[in-house]
Design a binder for these strands. Structure first.
Lengths: 193, 193
DNA sequence: CCGAGATAGTACCGATCGTTCTTATCTGAC
DNA sequence: GTCAGATAAGAACGATCGGTACTATCTCGG
């Protein structure tokens, strides 16, 4: 049967629906383990529609990751903007991180996971994961500069290590308490900086 | 043609050869991306021999990871034993880590990578990755207790976060300098503990 | 020197993969 | 009302996957 009765014929909404469904199924089961058929079923879309919108599975993966990194960046920026200037803005990042670890079915960072799965190639997942880390470094660098830290670049790189370490340990151990532990480390590093 | 002329017919050596070849090809290209045919070719073994020794691809993966975690644990224990008692033993761990990041083709921790690739299942990779983290926590806990740190368990969990964070960032960014950065963080955390 | 076991090589099986194609139906602009 | 485009459903294709079967040859203990 063709298009479901009652649903809009809206190409942008279709694309967004596929992106959301693919993002969710990739997150839960991994990229390699999920076929286009499964994405199509989860999205309520046909394979033809997926290939017309994204060209290939590789294109779909890149679109999913690009969408994800942009959403994550916006979330962090908003959390930072809501916090008071200074050290609170850095801790606000790690408060958001702690809430993220506590989400049901948390499985780590989509960009790091995708780059790990695709570690033989220098494709979009590798590039997007590196750019994701660069975003964190730049964000922390700005906040540390605002907070008057002496060597903001060095401390920013330290905070990225803590953020990614807590993320993967929390994902592997299925333990949301890593968010609080990361925050303690960050406070120690800020005290020392 | 059958067994290569001049080579020993040694089942243990064959098994070890397959393990080494599989470990290397999994490390470079990932587990999902590598088929049994490729492992057989890399090992100079037939598929029959692989299946007789390991039963299935899943069994091979578990054997590879088990062998890997045991080797890694021995390396860390030896590095610790060579260092002077106290804080030096903890820093010796991170010196070994820094050398590991600098190895050609470094791609991160095999156990974390495998658990990430197989994140939908609660199989051997998940279990071995969690046990690998537990090894680190216990090792750091012992060393911190010896060094007279007040709350060794808390600091041990912090060091695991730093170790794993530096490992994944180094792997993604292809930057061995993360080893030195991790060491600086560790010194700060030890000073504060 | 002979039999049991290990091995390489290869063909093969059913399933699934990414991708393309066909068909039928619906939507929306004109 | 008509028609171009979007879509769903699913068949089909070649490739590859994990796993099995078969054959021929080698090693080694007796």
């Amino acid at each position: 049967m063709p298009v479901k009765a009652g649903e809009r014929l809206d190409p942008e909404a279709t694309r967004a629906r596929i992106l959301a469904a693919a993002s969710e199924v990739f997150r839960r089961r991994g990229i390699h383990a999920v076929g286009i058929n499964e994405v199509a079923e989860a999205a309520g879309a046909s394979k033809l529609t997926i290939y017309r919108n994204f060209g290939s599975k590789e294109g779909l993966v890149e679109a999913v990751l690009t969408d994800r990194t942009q959403r994550v960046r916006a979330w962090y920026q908003q959390a930072v903007d809501r916090a008071d200037a200074g050290r609170d803005r850095i801790l606000a990042v790690f408060d958001l991180v702690a809430a993220w670890y506590a989400e049901a079915g948390f499985r780590g960072c989509a960009m790091m996971n995708a780059a790990t799965e695709d570690r033989a190639h220098d494709g979009a997942p590798q590039r997007l994961a590196q750019e994701h880390l660069t975003f964190y470094r730049d964000l922390f660098g700005r906040l540390l500069t605002e907070a008057g830290v002496r060597d903001p670049a060095t401390t920013a790189r330290q905070l990225v290590i803590v953020l990614e370490g807590a993320t993967i340990v929390s994902a592997i151990d299925r333990n949301p308490a890593l968010g609080a532990e990361a925050r303690v480390i960050v406070e120690t590093l800020l005290d020392a900086a």
